[in-house]
Amino acid sequence: MNGLGLYFDVAHLLAGGLVLVSFMMLYQFRMYALLNFYAVHALVLSASVAWQALIQGAPHLYVTAGIALVFKALIIPVALHRIVQRLGIHRTIETVVGIGPTMLAGMGLVALSIGVMLPVTGSADILAREDLAFALAVILLGLLMMVSRHNAVSQVVGFMSLENGLVLAATGAKGMPLVVEISVAFSVLIAFIVIGIFLFRIRERFDTVDVQALDSFRGERR
């Protein structure tokens, strides 16, 4: 990998940074810290996409980077901050399993995604291969976050970090048209709005956004 030079090293650094931030999101106990790390996640994604735009000479990717920066690193975290404030949501995050096992599982997922991606993309160029492996790791870590948290807000954050992984995968491969990225970004925005409204509804009904309350309302045993 030494012969690939600065371009590859920086792209590798940024994609690896995204995985690292995903890990950092996994061990956050407090809501604001989680939202801040999500902003960092989006920031690193934006930098990674911008770097891809530079090395691929694809100016439309700058638009994607801009969308990531404006919407995901600024608007969404700020909005979520305000929702949390206005709803007076409990500021600690209850996890299903402990942080230790979650981190171990996350490491296993990264190993798995590298194990899946590297053999099947043998014919692609080295940069795309590494990128796809990291992207899959980010997606799986986002899913892991969704299933290991009780809190609805952290599930939303997990879903959006998953989506960041999708964008990373999309920009890593050359020749991905802009339309797709915009539609993906907007779908996430819509999902965010829907889930936001959903949160208000839950709060109105049950005075909590803990999804356990929904289950107890349905009379489920746990």
């Binding site: 299903v96 997922l109 798995l112 995604s113 899946v116 799986l140 899913l143 892991l144 969704m146 299933v147 948290r149 009780h150 599930q155 999804v211 356990q212 929904l214 289950d215 489920e220 746990r222």
Partner: peptide, 18 residues
């Protein structure tokens, strides 16, 4: 529960990748 459905999907995905 919603989380358990998500866990099912997640588990199935991991299994297939394995």
């Amino acid at each position: 529960t919603i989380r358990k459905y998500l866990s099912l999907v997640f588990g199935a995905l991991i299994l297939l990748l394995l």
